[in-house]
């Protein structure tokens, strides 16, 4: 297990290196001068030079590359082009919105979708089971922002039950108001993530149900639900862990769109605003961090999978 862990961490570091390089080369080596595209037309050559200097694009590409990797390794993501504040500080300032949003949607969708998915599998021939699967399919096909707008229209505009968007200026100092403004975004993200999860859980359950050991359990007098309860968790765990990894990553990414729908000052809106303002250091820093998070989640998933499935432990 330890040697596996070491190998897996080495792999993660390699992936982070590749991801960092990809971010760099996508932006610098492809044709076009970022400094020119970043500035409005008609800027003076001096302005362009200044930007070039700040971006470091006046140095040779390889030197820039080495510098970027060195900065990444030391956790320095540079400064914003416009506010001149360190990128890392700006990102940290947005986490109190994004992390609660992503995590509560993640947890809620597990609580809601796992039982529904199991039900849809056990009753896959029944009317209710088919209805549930169809709804989930619809939830996957609908754009998440459309769901968000409809939720706003229904709950905030028609019923006037909750604020349609925004986040208190004082942040979490007023927890009541902060939670209120997160209810609809979390609900929307939960609908989207939950739909995906229902499909995955249903398919994982069907997989367990089709196994011969379930038939053995039934031949010994277990009812179908009890047989599922006896064999499902341990046999479905590896798959479910993998699904949860995907889900956690996509909850994080979902916040980008959700924060835009509900005008929340989180990481996603920072990213979007920076893309529109062409604040390159913030964009590449945020993108790199999000990608790194996804890769780290992948590592955790692989390790946990090994822990829950002893058959994987022996093999390389």
């Amino acid at each position: 297990m330890l040697s596996y862990l070491i190998r897996r961490v080495a792999w993660l570091i390699g992936s982070l290196f590749v991801a960092g390089s990809a971010v760099f080369f996508l932006l610098r080596v492809l044709p076009g001068d970022p400094a020119v595209t970043l500035l409005a037309v008609g800027s003076s050559p001096d302005q362009i030079d200044a930007i070039r200097h700040q971006l470091g694009t006046d140095r040779p590409v390889l030197a820039q590359y080495g510098h970027w990797l060195g900065d990444l390794a030391t956790g320095n993501l540079g400064d914003s082009l416009f506010t001149q504040l360190p990128v890392l500080d700006q990102i940290a300032g947005r986490l109190p919105v994004t992390v609660p949003l992503a995590l509560s949607a993640f947890v809620l969708s597990i609580i809601v979708a796992v039982p529904i998915g199991v039900f849809a599998a056990v009753r896959r021939r029944g009317l209710l089971g088919v209805a549930v699967s169809t709804l989930a399919q619809l939830g996957i096909a609908l754009p998440i922002f459309w769901v968000g707008i409809m939720v706003v229209w229904l709950v905030a505009v028609q019923w006037r039950a909750l604020p349609p968007g925004g986040f208190p200026r004082t942040g979490w100092q007023d927890p009541g108001a902060a939670i209120q403004s997160l209810v609809l975004p979390v609900a929307t993200l939960t609908i989207a993530q939950g739909s995906v999860l229902v499909r995955y859980v249903r398919s994982a359950t069907l997989d367990v149900l089709s196994q011969e050991y379930v038939r053995t359990a039934r031949s010994l007098g277990y009812s179908l639900p009890r047989a599922l309860w006896r064999h499902g968790p341990r046999n479905g765990a590896a798959t479910v862990v993998q699904i949860l990894g995907i889900l956690l990553a996509s909850s994080l990414l979902g916040t980008v769109v959700i924060e835009s729908v509900f005008a929340l000052p989180g990481l996603g809106s920072l990213l979007l605003a920076s893309v529109k303002a062409r604040d390159l250091p913030i964009v590449q820093g945020t993108v790199f961090l999000m990608t790194a998070t996804v890769l780290v989640v992948g590592l955790v998933v692989d390790v946990v999978q090994r822990l829950v499935d002893p058959r994987l432990r022996g093999s390389a």
């Binding site: 196994q211 011969e212 050991y213 038939r215 053995t216 039934r218 031949s219 010994l220 007098g221 277990y222 009812s223 006896r230 064999h231 341990r234 046999n235 499935d309 002893p310 058959r311």
Partner: peptide
């Protein structure tokens, strides 16, 4: 059926590997 399965009538299947839960 559940009252008789395993108590009155039992069965052993052909493939013992798949008939047993691999993780229990």
């Amino acid at each position: 059926w559940r009252r008789v399965r395993g108590r009155t009538v039992s069965i052993v299947f052909q493939e013992p590997l798949t008939a047993l839960d691999p993780l229990m």
